[in-house]
Design a protein around this nucleic acid. Structure first.
Length: 882
RNA sequence: GGGCGUAUAGCUCAGUUGGUAGAGCAUCUGCCUUACAAGCAGGAGGUCAUAGGUUCGAGUCCUAUUGCGCCCACCA
């Protein structure tokens, strides 16, 4: 595993794919199968088998990969199970299109041949997304990969169908369902998408029977009037009260239909009168049921007109609409046409307008199944992260309707119901039965319909583990730990997994549901094909690297919120990768002769400081990943590596490294190796490739970083005194730089520094070379008091350190005075606040003791600083007076 | 119509039991300092949407208002 040397430039293309291949070959993605270790399992939401990776997948995959790599490094027996979904309707549509191009029709070639075609298609176009997930670095166990139409999963599907049927929770019934005229199948409520559209609202008059007046209805769908079986008004509507119970004549059909009163009619909409077509409208259907109205179908499954009026027969409904409107105009029955924007339901797959239709279909009775699914979240067995999504979940389940699960397509799990040709009995069986269980007849015909694709996805958390068999995998990994997915499929998927799992296995499918937002474009728009604003993750990986993509998806984002994706973020990510690369190059260059020994004895203050910082970082990272605050965890690593390790530690230890006779050189080497190694480990779940690449060059890194031990917080390596000391050094050094910058002192110009301290004498003695370097000093004098400070020195100070810089000819008294005054003002403002708090009885009495002490300490500090400043100002004034 | 979310620096966003407002990018100044100019150092920039309330103390909790966004239902 160990490599010779890091290349001069960070060039991810050289190693990302190669490293992935090695990981896979070595079998690192597989569970460790250590039964003494706790199991941790994530089920990857199965993408469409013939799909392509988009940013949503990339985010989803990155988050899961971070979690699984983290847990894997912590020693858990991890399983990240990937797979794909057969995506019933969308795949079927594609096959139908392909056949059409070849001049074939699915009904001509027949079911068996069609399915052969579909499998061919799946094999040919499937797998792309898996290759893309690998580019992203996903460490899923591909050998555990499942497909919803696999034998095992299919058996699970049929088993669940039978279980639910036997319990009376699946039934067949004639109901109003959503019909897609394009796909020629029923779909579930969840699959209907509403969109605003412009249309006409036609006002049509129906003559009252036996009277010389009319009732005017308003409709957006005049063609359905042929199937009207009533006109409804609101019972409270005074305008029409006298008409209720009378009859009117349906134009064109010349047929008498009743005028009825129904609560569902809005008084204020249109004319307040609604034509009722029970066969083609959800609401009208309900009205029809309430009033026992006849149901007359006007057109068929393909939107072609029936024979109600012979001259319209076979016409498409839109053509028929035109003719009907014309005809009404001619007879004078069309009173008015007005514009109307209304919501139209469309099939989410093909965007065709949905037709409500009465049809015999299979349903899952939801009421009984919903309750335990609600309870499981209420009782905390399953937890939503962030919790706000519980509300969405409850809202959906509490208002749930029965789920239409049968589809009139072939690509999917065929419904395991065998009708007896003799007695009509429904034999429900996983295998095809020999004979009817009721009458013994052997002539049985299977229901031609297939199941909703979500019916099989709903079983994903357990069907993939071998259920209904009691497999080892099932026993080890079920219930799974974390489900990671977007909020857009709470209804489709999460809800259905919850109730299916609870019903079938008696347990919740997962403990935590981690819900992320949508990745939008840089302007905040949803990425979509029609807008053409989609970003291909693979292009991003090619251009910037998988690590940079992953970083930009996680950094600075909080869970559950949508995020914008922008090139700037990617640049920042790539720059970070580059920074790590260069810092590592520096470390590797300087530890070439390091022997690997642990050097606790000779630790210098800065060593203890960085080790303390590292430890605190480890604690913070673990805490945040455990709470799924991945963005916070990553940003804290970024902060540490760049702003602590690179900006300060490396700069501080440079003098020790350059002096090869120095005994503390080896200590610095130990610390550099340790801190870089641990930082890489902390970062590995987020940026797996670059961390692996560098790790291979570190001392004693013979194994892959991805199976190394994740760093643990170590109390022994927390040094408070040294931590405070270096923090103070940082403050004064920054101040020195600030002063020099303001005075335009060139970096090459060195000065003397006089350090006054009571507390840090020892530490400064040890750090003298580093201080010289950081403080642009050629000499450093340490003293306990302010004796013999040159008159023209500038002072910078922190709590326990004061440094004087005798600038001699460089000093500009006026500038210096201004600087001090400005600083003093800042301190005075803070002093006022602190005093305000301390003079407030309420604060003294009610605030926590610790807090009060903190403020008192702060006051002490401020007082000292201000005193120093006053003294300084006096000095300057004295000098000027001379 | 019902539900949910959000409003913080010029832009994109963090801010975890309430305790002195943060990052990245952009901007300004000075640096090719032998890991890194994809960089280093320093600076400027915010009455945390508005109005109330709770509290010793509110970006954080409560109420109302306004703007923006999303989901569900769907009016023919």
């Amino acid at each position: 595993m160990k490599e010779a040397k890091l290349e001069e430039k960070y060039n991810p293309k050289d190693f990302e794919e190669e490293i992935y291949k090695e990981w896979e070959e070595k079998g690192y993605f597989k569970p460790n199968n250590d039964k003494t270790k706790e199991a941790y399992c994530i089920m990857m939401p199965p993408p469409n088998v013939t799909g392509k990776l988009h940013m949503g997948h990339a985010l989803d995959g990155t988050m899961q990969d971070i979690l699984i790599r983290y847990k894997r490094m912590q020693g858990f027996n991890t399983l990240w199970l990937p797979g794909t979904d057969h995506s019933a309707i969308s795949t079927e549509v594609k096959i139908v299109e392909k056949l059409k191009k070849e001049g074939k029709d699915k009904h001509d070639i027949g079911r068996e041949k069609f399915l052969e075609e579909a499998w061919e298609w799946t094999k040919e176009y499937g797998g792309t997304i898996v290759r893309q997930q690998k580019r992203l670095g996903c460490s899923a166990d591909w050998e555990h990969s499942r497909f919803t139409l696999d034998e095992g999963l299919s058996k699970a599907v049929l088993t669940v169908f039978k279980n639910l049927y036997d319990k009376g929770l699946i039934y067949k019934g004639k109901r109003m369902i959503n019909w897609c005229p394009c796909c020629k199948t029923s779909i579930s409520d969840a699959e209907v998408e509403y969109e605003e559209e412009q249309t006409n609202l036609w006002h049509i008059r129906y003559k009252i029977v036996g009277e010389d007046r009319y009732i005017v209805v308003a409709t957006t769908r005049p063609e359905t009037m042929l199937g009207d079986t009533a006109v409804a008004v609101n019972p409270e509507d005074d305008r029409y009260k006298d008409l209720v119970g009378k009859k009117c004549i349906l134009p064109i059909m010349n047929k008498e239909i009743p005028i009825i009163a129904d609560e569902s009619v809005e008084v204020d909409f249109g004319t307040g009168c609604v034509k009722i077509t029970p066969a083609h409208d959800v609401n009208d259907y309900q009205v029809g049921l309430r009033h026992n109205l006849e149901i007359i179908e006007v057109f068929d499954e393909e939107n072609k007109m029936n024979n109600l009026v012979p001259e319209y027969k076979g016409l498409d409904i839109m053509e028929a609409r035109k003719l009907i409107v014309q005809s009404l105009e001619k007879t004078g029955d069309l009173i008015k046409t007005e514009k109307l924007t209304h919501n139209v339901g469309k099939h989410d797959r093909c965007k065709t307008i949905i037709e409500p239709k009465i049809s015999e279909q299979w349903f899952v009775a939801m009421k009984e199944l919903a309750k335990p699914a609600i309870d499981a979240v209420k009782s905390g067995k399953t937890r939503f992260v962030p919790p706000k999504f519980e509300k969405t979940y409850f809202n959906w389940l509490e208002n749930i309707q029965d789920w239409c699960i049968s589809r009139q397509i072939w690509w999917g799990h065929q419904i395991p119901v065998y009708y007896c040709e003799k007695c009509g009995h429904k034999n429900v069986s996983i295998e095809k039965p020999e004979h009817c269980e009721k009458c013994g007849e052997t002539n049985l015909v299977q229901d031609p319909d297939t199941l909703d694709t979500w019916f099989s996805s709903a079983l994903w958390p357990f069907s993939t583990l071998g259920w209904p068999e009691k497999t080892d995998d099932f026993k080890t990994f079920y219930p799974t730990n974390t489900l990671v997915t977007g909020y857009d499929i709470i209804f489709f998927w999460i809800v259905r997994m919850m109730f299916s799992a609870i019903e079938q296995t008696g347990e919740v499918p997962f403990k935590d549901v981690l819900i992320h937002g949508i990745v939008r474009d840089s302007q905040g728009r949803k990425m979509s094909k029609s807008l053409g604003n989609g970003i291909d993750p693979i292009e991003i990986i090619d251009k910037y690297s998988a690590d940079a993509l992953r970083f930009s998806l996680i950094s600075g984002n909080s869970i559950g919120n949508d995020m914008r994706f922008s090139p700037e973020k990617l640049e920042a990510a790539k720059n970070f990768a580059n920074k790590i690369w260069n810092a590592s190059k520096f470390v590797l260059m300087n530890i070439e002769d390091y022997d690997g020994s642990v050097q606790i004895e000779g630790l210098m203050p800065e060593d203890k400081w960085i080790l303390t910082k590292l430890n605190k970082l480890i604690q913070e990272v673990c805490l945040n990943i455990d709470e799924y605050n991945l963005g916070v965890a990553l940003d804290s690593i970024y902060e540490f590596i760049w702003n602590e390790f690179c900006d300060w530690y490396i700069e501080i230890v440079k003098p020790r490294l350059y002096d090869k006779t120095n005994d503390s050189r080896k200590v610095a080497q130990y610390v550099l190796n340790k801190v870089l190694g641990d930082s890489l480990k902390l970062l590995h779940p987020f940026m797996p490739f670059i961390t692996e690449k560098i790790y291979r060059n570190l001392y004693n890194s013979d194994e892959s970083i991805m199976i190394s031990k994740f760093p643990k917080y170590d109390e022994e390596q927390v040094y408070t005194l040294e931590e405070d000391y270096i923090e103070e050094v940082k403050k004064v050094i920054t101040e020195i730089r600030n002063v020099r910058a303001k005075m335009n002192v060139h970096p090459a110009k060195k000065t003397k520094l006089i350090v006054v301290t009571n507390l840090y004498e020892n530490e400064i003695q040890k750090s003298i070379e580093s201080l010289k370097k950081l403080g642009f000093a050629d000499t450093i004098i340490i003293q306990k008091d302010k004796k013999d400070i040159p008159q023209n020195a500038i002072s910078v100070l922190s709590s326990n350190l004061e440094i004087f810089i005798p600038f001699e000819e460089l000093i500009d008294i006026k500038e210096e005075m201004e600087r001090i005054q400005k600083e003093k003002e800042k301190l005075l403002i803070e002093m006022e606040k602190v005093d305000g708090m301390l003079n407030n009885e309420g604060f003294i009495n009610k605030a926590p003791v610790q807090k009060v002490q903190e403020i008192r300490n702060r006051k002490q500090e401020l007082t000292e600083k201000l005193n120093n400043m006053e003294e300084r100002i006096r000095q300057i004034n004295d000098k000027q007076a001379e």
